[in-house]
Write a protein that binds this DNA or RNA. Structure first.
Lengths: 216, 216
DNA sequence: GTCAATGTGTCAAAAATTTAACAACCTCGT
DNA sequence: ACGAGGTTGTTAAATTTTTGACACATTGAC
């Protein structure tokens, strides 16, 4: 499938292509050129062609790209042609919010259970999905195929939980706790969503923007 | 304050430095060298020094960096020395989850109101913070200083809301809707949190990881 | 069927980012 | 007060990423 290493910079852009192509598809657009796409996406056409060519030649000279075909192919590249079962560790507000986000399911990401240590939550459900106690985790993982664990718990507990999950055979973690999990050398893929980092970036740009306005 | 343009690559790393320095501070560490920090953060010492030097010389030869001082300075760079009032547009699960996330307040980001169009939510509160109807937005913005609007609503409504917010004088948007807001040329700073993009990246890396295991 | 227009894949150049190297300087033990 | 050891700020090299350019394939009008 993959041959040479593809830079994460490219990978970061792929979901965005997928999104735009999905919209074109919904709009009934059949074909598109890198040039037209570059205008709507506000990136260079060269970058689009370069990015796509990392994975193969999906276009045709003189024609462009077939929207449906390209959309499907990028979907395959991103693994969206297969189902991913998710468990959510930490059934607090964020965990529940994610569980309620139906859109993920359309992409093949299906939440099959939530876990928490708070006994008050035991047996309750979110969108029909049950909240279990952490003690039940080993059995649950043995009985169900769990592809991804979403970590939505306080940072103090995140690292220990992550190690525990890896022990139970989980190979992918979607980490919302604002720590960097110390899982080097472990056979596990981690994707971080650091909301406070994001806010701080925004804050930096706010201050910068104000400054530039004052001095121009 | 800022002189030459600093690349967003650097800015993306600053919150992470801030986080690690905060932890060192909590641990009572007084000073640290770029070398020691590089080991814990798993980046090169050279990058740390280079990054920090974009903003000035915070260290001292033969000594290293004073943790508290550096933490404070990075905080200032990121604008964490001032308060940022946030309104949340869309009081659904995600909006409420964010509102409940107390940690932001410690960083100076204070949520002062939620807005929705669902009449059933009118007057309810989340962590003591009131949910208003969208109709009240103009008056609310006139009476309160609103620095950031967090957009936690369906993508169909995101773009129109964003334009409306800009009209009302808001200059910063924290966008959770998975569309790219079309706000070029507007005097507004946008920070995106595209959760599904993040999930797709994770998915890509899962597939890649599996593939590499099978072929090694 | 021909040909201008279109548009990809790819190679090369340019720009940006990261890493390495080191001179200058500070610390701290003696 | 001195000097060995340590550490920054900074310059230069290496690497990565992005952009530009164009040969060549395909389309679609006539």
């Amino acid at each position: 499938m993959q041959e040479k290493e593809i830079s994460q910079a490219v990978i970061r852009r792929m979901p965005r292509y997928y999104r735009y192509l999905g919209e074109l598809l919904d709009d009934g657009v059949e074909r598109i050129s890198s040039n037209d796409l570059s205008r709507t996406m506000r990136v260079t056409a060269s970058q689009i062609r370069q990015d796509l060519n990392n994975f193969g030649g999906f276009g045709q000279q003189g024609y462009g790209y077939n929207v449906k075909y390209l959309h499907d192919e990028i979907g395959k590249i991103l693994g969206l042609n297969q189902r991913h079962n998710i468990i959510v560790i930490g059934a607090g507000n964020l965990g529940q919010a994610i569980t309620n986000y139906v859109k993920f399911e359309q992409l093949g990401f299906v939440i099959i259970g939530l876990f928490d240590i708070n006994p008050a939550l035991e047996g309750k459900t979110v969108r029909g999905i049950r909240i279990h106690m952490m003690d039940d985790l080993p059995e649950f993982c043995a009985r169900n195929q769990v592809d991804i664990a979403a970590l939505t718990l306080p940072k103090e507990k995140a690292d220990a939980s992550a190690h525990y999950l890896v022990e139970l055979g989980i190979h992918a973690i979607w980490n919302f706790a604002h720590v960097d999990l110390d899982l080097i050398d472990q056979d596990v893929v981690v994707e971080n969503v650091h909301l406070s980092d994001s806010l701080m970036q925004l804050s930096y740009n706010i201050v910068k923007n104000r400054f530039e306005k004052e001095h121009s």
